[in-house]
Design a binder for these strands. Structure first.
Lengths: 341, 341
DNA sequence: AAAGAAAAGGAATAGGTTTTCCTTAGAGTA
DNA sequence: TACTCTAAGGAAAACCTATTCCTTTTCTTT
């Protein structure tokens, strides 16, 4: 095609310069506070720019400066429950630095992922954030060297590449300490699938903290299953049959806790009076909708995203980080463990 | 700063041209299949490009062509439950056209929104999609004329600006027809807050379809309240007290339906045998986690996003759409209304 | 062999901005 | 008066690519 087909050309710095009666270079200096100019000239240019609604063409700036103030965010999670808060945090940290974010959802398709990476590279992004829904190491996204990458809520098989993940182990510990602190001594844990690293880490932290506090629970008391309410319902029955005296249950997700809560009600056990309940994720629609509302462990995913973005910015500025960063979890106390509400 | 501070400059078409022993212009033509070149020359250039890992600088192309193949997506919903599927659909439609998406979350702050719009404009996006979590008309985003805007899952107070929203009214009708088709005759409806247009439209469609089918229910039988499980629990008790013979309840959201389901169990009514239940949103974690799983109305939000993106692309190509487009809902049948599962 | 046509590829321009280097004009000094 | 110095601002290069318009080479044809 020739040039642009249509519409009123946006005003450029050339228009501003003309209106102010100066050269293009002078206009640029006036707008950016560079060079030596008479104050009155600066004002004239500023006025012209305001009047014409001038905003510099970022493309041209980027072309010249070699930096686009743009990063790519790649998710395999279909903007799911985990990657979204991560993105929010990252966007927050980046956005305040005038960096814009290209969003790409690979739908778990490696071919699509490659295409997106190519596209982002030819858009000359300054860096890449890769998010996922599992913290397990994944194949490296493998860009050319020179463009920095940070993994968030996932990590690379190449363990030198920087990654930020929540501290699931610490989250499990938090749950145990909270329940024990509330006077519970006969603990149970209902978990997601054992093949999930996060499920194992949560269970590990929980058991470890309990044992350190002198409360007996062992890793093979953990009921691994699925990430579903259905499994929560089943597992609660199994657990109560095996250990009728249990007075606290930690669940590997809020969904599990919802299922457990249901079964407990049907079995005639009161929450929290008979059995205290702690979930994981602090997924508010789930946790607040439960009756009573669920105490839960919040992974602070926004912090994960924010941290990842900070690391990326550092890398772009020439201070590449390495290895794994974990972000601590936080306990949110609600009625299901006797807290407020 | 001088130029770029660091790293191995990316290979440009100049490098390719040098390597192939041709001029820049010729290299460009070879790579884009333009002009008249000896096949052998084309091959040589292609080989050089491959060897050097050349990808054209999209910034330079955009600067030249006046189009960036970039759109901005602005959400007020903190990437919430509604705007996400919309974005997914839009990204899908745009991405396959080689258009990349800038993501911006305004956190419902008008000042932030203005800043983002400014930033997107100075990045010379080809268009804008504005999404929200409510379908109520909102103040126009008000960009300069020339850059097209489409609203998705929200609409502009300026009713001429194009918008795509789900057909809540039709969704309500679907629910009524389904329940009546299953032989139910004493219908109840538990809704969200009356100040929400979506809540009113769903209720309207439901009552209208019921009445047309000769089943009595009137708009003031609708129990408006909150969008919460808690209100679902309460409203179910209120409804059963007022109309003990009810044999089907349509809920304005899956969360409401979850609450209703809980209360029904406690009141000793079986779902679906005694009372059939239909939710709205088809929010899978909620709908599938319920016991029994919920029949629900799916707003097909991905389609809403896809449609919005298509309209935007049309507008960019010079065929600006106008006014409101609605996307039909779909009934997803599950056990709570006697369906499969 | 000469002339014309077609094929192949090169030079230059445009796009918008920033920065470096120069030029001009005025003020100050010897 | 002649010189230097500084302040103010202009001209041009650079960033990278696509396209238009030319020039050169090669082939056909008479």
């Amino acid at each position: 095609m020739p040039h642009r087909a249509e519409a009123a050309r946006r005003t450029t710095i050339r228009d501003v310069a003309a209106q102010a009666g100066v050269s293009i270079g002078t206009a640029s200096k006036a707008l950016n506070g560079q060079g030596k100019l008479r104050p009155e000239t600066r004002d004239r240019v500023a006025a012209a720019a305001r009047e014409l609604g001038f905003a510099p063409n970022v493309l041209a700036q980027a072309l010249l400066g070699g930096r686009t103030y743009t990063v790519g965010m790649i998710t395999t999670d279909s903007f799911g429950r985990f990657s979204i808060p991560v993105m929010l945090g990252a966007e927050d940290a980046l956005g305040s630095g005038q960096v814009s974010v290209f969003m790409c959802d690979t739908r778990d398709d490696p071919a699509r992922e490659r295409r997106y990476v190519e596209r982002l590279l030819s858009r000359r992004v300054d860096g890449l954030i890769v998010t996922g829904r599992r913290i397990e190491p994944r194949p490296s996204i493998g860009t050319r060297p020179g463009i920095p990458v940070v993994y968030a809520m996932t990590q690379s098989l190449d363990s030198d590449e920087p990654a930020v993940i929540p501290d699931d182990h610490g989250g499990g510990q938090l749950a145990a300490l909270h329940l024990i602190g509330a006077g519970r001594r006969r603990l149970g844990h209902i978990a997601g699938p054992e093949r999930f690293l996060a499920a194992r880490k949560r269970a590990g932290g929980f058991c470890e903290a309990a044992v350190s506090a002198g409360v007996g629970i062992s890793p093979h008391d953990v009921l691994y299953g699925e990430w579903s309410e259905q499994w929560g319902r089943e597992a609660a029955r199994i657990l109560l049959a095996a250990a009728p005296g249990v007075d606290a249950i930690f669940c590997g997700s809020d969904q599990l806790a919802r299922g457990v809560s249901d079964s407990l009600r049907q079995l005639g056990r009161r929450v929290p009076d008979d059995i205290a309940l702690v979930g994981f994720d602090n997924w508010e629609p789930m946790a607040l909708g439960a009756d009573p509302p669920l105490t839960s462990i919040d992974m602070c995913l926004e912090d994960v995203g924010r941290r990842a973005a900070e690391l990326l910015l550092a890398a772009i500025d020439g201070e590449p980080p390495h290895g794994l960063t974990t972000v601590p979890c936080r306990l949110i106390t609600r009625a299901s463990s006797g807290g407020p509400g």
